[in-house]
Structure formats: C-alpha cells, structure tokens
Amino acid sequence: MSCGYQMGLLILRPCGEPVAGQCGSCGVGLCAAHLGAGECPSCMVMRGERNENDLTREAGARKDYYESYGEGAHFGDPAYFNAADRAALRPGVAGFAMGADDDNDYDPFET
C-alpha cells in the first residue's frame, strides 16, 4: 500500500510513499510525513487548522485556488474552469483603466 494523499497545485498526484497509517477523518492511507497528528493535511484544513505546518499551508493555498477558480469542482474535471474564472480574476484589478484620463483628480496639497 502506498500513501494516497494528493500532492501538488498544478500537478495533482498521489504521494506514493509506504503507508504508515490512515487519516482519522477521510480514511485514506497515509505515509509518516502526511499522517501528522492522525489526519491528512486536507482534512486538517477543512477543520480550519491551515497554519499547523508547511503541508497544511500548501493544502490551504490549493483549496483557495481551486474554490475561487473552479467553484469547488475537482481539478481536471471538465467543469473545473468556467465563467467563475473571469469573476474570480476581477476583484484584484479594481485599478485597471488602461488609457483612461486621470486629469480630474483635485489635490488641495499640490505644489
């Protein structure tokens, strides 16, 4: 048996190391590195413990990306990327105004 924890952000792949135990929440077989405190990093993130270690931070970042870019669909699913992509990209570019005229801003302290 090999560790079934899914690693990666762009390239999802199972860890593949020898199993040392099972995740107490989802039951997947885990290696010593991913077993941690008896749960896989993904389950720990689901419980809100995303700053426990590097693995939970990575799993937390992946959850954020996948949820904002794919409405929770699994990476690789045909439904993964959709109209939500564009919606998710918009909030960060509020200042976007290529070529816009910015002459009308009055500054009382200008010299």
Partner: peptide, 13 residues
C-alpha cells in the same frame, strides 16, 4: 500572485 498562478492553472486545465 494569485492571478499569475491562476494563469498557469488555466494553462494546465
């Protein structure tokens, strides 16, 4: 950074 990584995510997709 999220938007930059998002471009790679879409390319992989």
């Amino acid at each position: 950074a999220k938007e930059v990584v998002g471009m790679l995510l879409r390319l992989f997709g």
